[in-house]
Amino acid sequence: MTPLLELRSISCGYENTVIAGQLNMQLQAGEIACLLGPSGCGKTTVLRAVAGFNSLLSGTIVQNGKEISSVGFTLPPEQRGIGVVFQDYALFPHLNVFDNIAFGLHRRSAAEKKLSVAEMLKLVELPDISNRYPHELSGGQQQRVALARALAPKPKLLLMDEPFSNLDTDLRKQLALEVRSILKDQGIAAIMVTHDQQEAFAISDKLGILARGTLQQWGTPTELYYQPVNPLVAGFVGKGELFDAECLSETAVVTELGTIEFAEPFGGVTGKQLSLFIRPADIRPSTEKGNVMATIEQKEFLGSSVVYQLMLPSGRRIESEIFEPLMFEVGSQVSLHVSAHRPIAFSG
């Protein structure tokens, strides 16, 4: 199947300065992808190159089998059939909602524009605000109008640059799920740029970690969470700590947290040195006898979970998160048990 979009070893930046280089990825029709990474890593630069706003320093961008960007050639944005939702929404303040949404429908008749705008407003659940102006709308409503405007021309691909960053946490999560539902219902593929891991997990079918100027890993959110290719990816998609480990067998390792037995063989070779990535939710404090003792230095009650800051005998501080009403007081001595889920291990 021909990908809807393909980046072939692209490098992009400004004035011959590479910000993100040698990126390879494919997006199929109807797939929703996220580029996740720290501020300044080049996520927006890549998005602008896909939109046609920035030229390439190397490589090729192909859309439906047709080259749309290469060195020395950039198909104009208006000829790509790609919708864009900007971080600041970019609504025209002097136009009402109807005219904002209809702005990109130049070649439609008045009747077609009216029908299309009504359809889009119904889609984003704002059917009665066509006469309002942007300053009369809440942040969430402005975001929905920006989405409606981008979807009105019926693009096959939508690009979103930090679309929910100006909203509060609860509204961000709600809108992310709503946007995913709308895109899936309309069969529209999308690439969203974000630095929020939870947001990326909520909306994406495919996820790319962009850091240190390159695409570290591209795959499903599940693959990146459970099978990260390096510690950088592991740490970016979820909290965790690296521990030096030595294989005792195909199913066991010894670490600073004691001996950890895994349910299934993971390919360990006796005596081999590894770095084991362990998440806070896998470390459980207990009053029962365990491999190693720790001191609780701090606790934080989060409602659905409790986070403990623990001091190991070596002086190392680590974090544990438990999802049950099991409370220990600061200063308590506890034993630590590590859950024997699938290991995340890297060669030492």
Score class of each variant (00 low, 15 high):
S11G: 10
S11I: 04
T17E: 09
A33K: 00
S39F: 01
C41A: 15
G42P: 09
L47G: 02
V50R: 05
V50M: 07
L56Q: 02
E67H: 08
I68V: 13
S69L: 05
R80K: 11
V84C: 02
Y89H: 00
H106E: 15
S109N: 10
S116G: 02
V124G: 04
R132I: 03
R132S: 11
Y133R: 10
P134I: 09
E136I: 06
S138V: 04
G139M: 06
Q141E: 15
Q142G: 06
R149D: 00
L167F: 08
L171S: 04
L171F: 10
R172P: 02
Q174W: 12
R180I: 02
Q197N: 09
I203G: 06
S204K: 01
D205S: 06
R212Y: 14
T220P: 07
T222A: 14
P231I: 11
L232R: 12
L232Q: 12
G240V: 13
F243P: 01
E246C: 12
E250S: 14
T251S: 15
T259Q: 14
T270I: 12
T270V: 13
G271N: 11
L274V: 06
E288H: 00
V292Y: 02
T295R: 15
Q298C: 11
E300L: 03
S304Q: 15
S305N: 11
V306I: 12
V306H: 02
G315S: 01
R316F: 07
R317E: 11
I322S: 01
G331V: 07
V334Y: 04
I344Q: 00
S347T: 13
